[in-house]
Design a protein around this nucleic acid. Structure first.
Length: 495
RNA sequence: CGGGGUGUAGCGCAGUCUGGUAGCGCACCUGCUUUGGGAGCAGGGGGCCGCAGGUUCGAAUCCUGCCACCCCGACCA
């Protein structure tokens, strides 16, 4: 039987499974540079859908897109002390602007940076754009009338990580970064919280990935932020994934880049800032939330192909089938459904079924003479292996209904999994025991930075966040430190 | 950057110990027959055996150095 190498089952080796799903799903390929990946059409298509939906949400909340340069003068990075501390170790540096060819002793020609072309000031390839953006904001802001500035950019950034993982952490990745400037502290905090809510809604409604919203502990906070808000998701293996962050930056960058405005009383004040971002890491979250041992599972709203139509039948029936397939495709397209017809004649239908299942297409429609006789298509969903006849009359509405149902079920399923693996912890013993299985460990926390560091070292678990909107524990002792609890905390192993 | 592993066709691998014409399965190309869950037969194409040195009449195989990738750690979205 002609089979590609199998996908490693999750319970055998989760990490190998993740890599297999990506390969068989045709999402990525290795680039020639360590830690860099090519996003192939089926993978990039997911990102394009993420972009399109988020972009609309950003505009709906008053933001506009702009674009700032890839290169940042190296001196900018050192302007904000904590910021430089956070990124210094993972920056790519541009030192020259020209190559020259050289010939070695064996007559072999190669190129090298021309020493004559060394840059006066070296450039950092942006690991994030706060510094260059705040440099520019300094030129744009003078009066309270110039505020707020609500800008987002879609960009690539580079962080030279020691260890990379497809989608979750690559040397170069795609993201969006919002950067806003405000006249007051409260307005900036509101903005940071608003964008966190945008991310939360997006994750639930589009990715079908349930997330916990929370605040980062000081140890996990963004370098240069006063407060970092986060959305945290729980993967199938019980590890947490930070899926988006929104930062209240206080006046740190305004101070570093001397950005002030004149208020209505004629006084000069420092500007308040936020930044917020999500990246192609979200695709990793989608994969690890929904996919199974047969490969990729995509929620319909981020599936580049939502429906694949496969014509079947003997040669004599092909013409009739082809006409019916064309009509069905046209109707679905008309209704805005992303449909693909697999009419390759060198593969038999069975081979196509397996291929589209591995690629995570939510709904498959088979169309052959038997179906035409009944006036329907033979439908099968990627999740649940549900089979049913789908009437060709009014097919678009029915397909849309099925896709919506799949989307809802994936979210419900993910929420159930997450809830079933969120544990209340009352002792060090249960903490360690639950951690073995993986999950969110909910602790009435009384520790400080040092306690958190010690626990991370001993158990590999970190505080993912202090969940928002939960009243502080009253009169409880922290099970991990014995100190009086001052907040609830979610611990987990994390990517 | 430490510990372990692997580099041979697009993918998965054998061959390396014991040096002697570079192989197998899948994929690919051509043709015919097929087509409702991974098609069959016949013919064919594709390799600097990770790279660079060395030993040898002769190196995928032995020696030295380097590089890349994967896994586990430390660091991180």
């Amino acid at each position: 039987m002609a089979q590609d190498s199998a996908i490693t089952p999750r319970d055998q080796d989760y990490s190998a499974w993740y890599l297999d799903v990506i390969q068989h799903g045709d999402l990525l390929d290795d680039a020639p540079v360590r830690g860099c990946k090519v996003l192939k059409p089926h993978g990039y298509g997911i990102w394009e859908l993420i972009q399109a939906d988020l972009d609309r949400r950003f505009r709906d909340t008053g933001h506009r897109n702009a674009y700032f340069p890839l290169f940042i003068p190296v001196s900018f990075l050192s302007r904000e002390a904590e910021h430089v501390e956070g990124f210094a170790k993972e920056c790519a540096i541009v030192t020259h602007h020209r190559l020259r060819s050289v010939t070695d002793d064996n007559g072999k020609v190669s190129v090298e940076p021309d020493p004559e072309s060394a840059l006066e000031e070296q450039l950092v390839v942006r690991p994030t754009s706060e510094t260059v953006i705040w440099h520019m904001y300094g030129r744009w802001i003078d009066s309270w009338r110039d505020l707020p500035i609500l800008i987002n950019q879609w960009a690539n950034v580079v962080r030279w990580e020691m260890r990379t993982r497809p989608f979750l952490r690559t040397a170069e990745f795609l993201w969006q970064e919002g950067h806003t400037a405000h006249a007051t502290r409260d307005e900036a905090i509101d903005e940071a919280r608003l964008m966190l809510q945008v991310y939360r809604d997006f994750a639930h409604e589009i990715l079908a990935v349930p997330v916990v919203t929370g605040v980062k502990s000081a140890r996990e906070r963004f370098a240069g932020a006063v407060e970092t808000f986060t959305i945290e998701a729980l993967m199938q293996n019980g590890w947490a994934l930070q899926s988006g962050t929104s930062h209240f930056l206080g006046q740190n960058f305004a101070k570093a880049f001397d950005v002030t405005f004149q208020n209505k009383n004629g006084e000069r004040e420092l500007v308040w800032a936020t930044s917020w971002g999500v990246s192609t890491r979200l695709i990793g979250a989608v994969i690890m939330t929904h996919s199974d041992d047969d490969g990729l599972v995509l929620p319909p709203r981020v599936a580049p192909i939502q429906v694949v139509i496969i014509p079947v039948g003997k040669a004599k029936d092909l013409e009739a089938v082809r006409q019916a397939v064309d009509a069905l495709r046209a109707e679905l397209r008309q209704a805005g459904i992303r449909v693909h017809v697999d009419d390759r004649d060198n593969l038999r239908p069975g081979a196509k079924y397996f291929e589209w299942e591995r690629k995570g297409v939510p709904l498959r429609l088979e169309l052959g003479p038997r179906d035409l006789a009944k006036g329907q298509a033979f439908a099968k969903t990627r999740i649940n292996r549900e089979k049913f006849g789908l009437p060709l009359q009014g097919a678009a509405m029915e397909v849309q209904r099925v896709l919506d149902k799949i989307q809802d079920e994936l979210l419900a399923r993910a929420i159930a999994m997450r809830d079933a693996r969120t544990y209340d912890i009352d002792s060090v013993e249960t903490f360690r025991a639950r951690l073995e299985e993986g999950g969110f460990l909910r602790v009435a926390w009384g520790g400080d930075d040092a306690d958190e560091g010690r626990i991370a070292e001993e158990t590999k678990a970190t505080i993912r966040c202090f969940p928002l909107d939960e009243p502080a524990p009253q009169g409880l002792a922290c099970p991990l430190t014995g100190k009086p609890a001052w907040t609830w905390a979610l611990f987990a192993r994390a990517y």
